[in-house]
Every structure is written in structure tokens, then in C-alpha cells.
Simulated assay, not measured.
Amino acid sequence: MVLSVLLNIIYPPPANLAVTAMSVFNLVSLGSSGWMEVQGKHLQYAKLQSDNTNENNKNVKIVEKAKVPSQLGMFVMYAPACIAGFSSFALRPSGDLRFNLVRSAVTAHFLKRVLEVLFVHKFSGSMDAETMVTVSLSYLLSASTMIYNQELVEGLSEPVIDLKYVGIAMFLLGIGGNFYHHFLLSKLREDGEKGYKIPQGGLFSLVICPHYFFEILGFLGISCISQTLYPLCFTVGSTFYLMGRSYATREWYESKFEDDFPKEIKAMIPYIF
């Protein structure tokens, strides 16, 4: 039953071993990363960075990792994937409607991220250079594979159910909602402030990470525009990761603000999770 539904809404997977391997890799690695976030093993950026100490073993030698300024680190995370998106238009000027929509959405997603880093977000402190490189390569590979994957299905028979226009609406809602809540976060601090506050406004009254919720909605929109297996696997994997990250973020706020943090606020999905 599920298989028959899928065959009506997605293209058959392309006969390309690299794309198939990337589909599985993204689903497994992102899902595993989400579980690690729940277990307290966080990617080392933003508020969930640890000090890498080991209180249970005083004899363990602490290795000081290379650090970069947070703004530089976040810029390097997103810029290569953004460049890959723009490069696809130069390398392949023509393409069918669905292909152009997919690469436009991928490029717009990472361009928004770059512009937010430059002009919206407020930064303090530093982040691990290793995390910066790992995430940057992951985004670059994922963006490039998503565009290449769509090129592989050009000319094939369209899925029975056409979801690309639904996908456009979901993507625009996702990218707009994500930006709006990033903007609210940027307004929490006055110039020169470095402390954290409980976010307010928008959906922050319901969940602590509404920007993650809208990010997933944007990825789901790209999946509907594409209607191929790779972006669907990426979206499912990203959902698991962001659920784990939002769960850890909620726990961080609870520990940081104790009695001041509203208990009814969920992690990422209003009223549910």
C-alpha cells in the first residue's frame, strides 16, 4: 500500500549508485546525529557547545580544539552550498521547470542563510573549526547532490500526482517563517549584549525552536517540488536531527532559566513535541 502510494508521487530512483548511497547516508547519519543530540553529544556551535571537560576523570588530557569566530564559522558553513547552487545555473543554463524550481529553491535556502549571517544574526564567542568544516562539506555535498539528482530524472515520465506547486507554497512558507523567527531571535539582544534570554513573539509562545519547524517545512517543500527519493531522505533525516537538537535546546533553556521557563512550551512541533 505504502509502496504503491510512493510510486504515484515520486520518480523511480535513478540508476546512480552515488545518489542512492547519499540517500541512505543522509537518512542514517542525520538520524543518528539527532539521537546524539538527545544524548548530550552536540555539534559544537551556538549555545549547546560544551567545554570538553571530563569531571569524572581528572587524568584525562584535554585537547584544545581550533576555534574560529562564530560569524565566520557560520558563513563558511553555508557559503559553499550557496555557491554550488549559483554555479549550477552557469554550468547548466537550461533545464525543465521542475529542475529549475529545485535548484532555485536550494540556492535561495542557502543564500538566505548567508545573508542572515551577514546582516541579521548577532554573534558572540567562537565555534569549533572542525564542526565548521564538517557541516560546510555536508551542506555542499547535499546541495550539489540534490541538484544533480534532479538532473538525472529530467525527461522521465512525471509522477501521477503533481506536487510541485504545493511544494512551492510550502517552501515559501517555510523560508519566510524561518527568517521571521531568526529575526525575532536577533532582536533579543541589544548591541554589546552577550547573555541569553527566553525568546518571545511568533510561535515562541508554543515551541522553543519554531525556526527548526519552518526549516523542515521548507525542506519538505523542496521534496514536493522534486518528487524524488534523495530530498525526501534528506528531509526525513533532517527532521530527526532537528527534533533531537530542539529537544536538547529546550533542556538547555530549562536548566538555564529554571523556574522562569514556561513548562507548556514544546521543543519544535506546537502542542505535540
Score class of each variant (00 low, 15 high):
residue 193 E to G: 13
residue 101 L to W: 12
residue 162 D to H: 03
residue 207 V to G: 05
residue 125 G to Y: 04
residue 129 A to W: 04
residue 191 D to F: 13
residue 97 L to G: 10
residue 205 S to P: 00
residue 129 A to F: 11
residue 187 K to R: 15
residue 85 G to N: 13
residue 170 M to R: 04
residue 120 V to S: 03
residue 184 L to C: 14
residue 79 A to K: 00
residue 87 S to N: 09
residue 107 T to L: 03
residue 99 F to K: 08
residue 148 Y to W: 08
residue 149 N to G: 08
residue 106 V to E: 02
residue 99 F to W: 14
residue 170 M to I: 11
residue 108 A to W: 10
residue 212 Y to R: 09
residue 208 I to L: 06
residue 106 V to S: 02
residue 172 L to C: 15
residue 130 E to I: 05
residue 120 V to P: 06
residue 207 V to K: 06
residue 161 I to A: 02
residue 166 V to W: 10
residue 178 N to A: 13
residue 94 S to A: 15
residue 169 A to K: 08
residue 189 R to K: 15
residue 130 E to T: 08
residue 172 L to A: 14
residue 188 L to V: 10
residue 210 P to E: 07
residue 187 K to L: 15
residue 137 L to N: 01
residue 177 G to N: 11
residue 173 L to T: 09
residue 101 L to V: 10
residue 165 Y to V: 04
residue 197 K to L: 13
residue 157 S to N: 07
residue 196 Y to D: 12
residue 196 Y to G: 10
residue 163 L to G: 03
residue 203 L to H: 08
residue 169 A to N: 05
residue 135 V to S: 00
residue 183 F to M: 14
residue 160 V to P: 00
residue 143 A to M: 05
residue 207 V to W: 05
residue 177 G to I: 13
residue 145 T to Y: 02
residue 84 A to G: 07
residue 211 H to V: 01
residue 97 L to E: 15
residue 140 L to Q: 03
residue 129 A to T: 01
residue 209 C to M: 11
residue 210 P to G: 07
residue 134 T to A: 13
residue 188 L to G: 15
residue 103 R to I: 09
residue 109 H to P: 09
residue 195 G to Q: 15
residue 163 L to V: 03
residue 131 T to V: 04
residue 188 L to D: 13
residue 103 R to Q: 12
residue 123 F to N: 04
residue 195 G to F: 13
residue 122 K to I: 07
residue 185 L to N: 14
residue 107 T to N: 04
residue 138 S to R: 00
residue 140 L to M: 09
residue 148 Y to L: 11
residue 180 Y to C: 10
residue 96 D to K: 04
residue 91 L to Y: 12
residue 82 C to H: 06
residue 176 G to V: 06
residue 96 D to L: 04
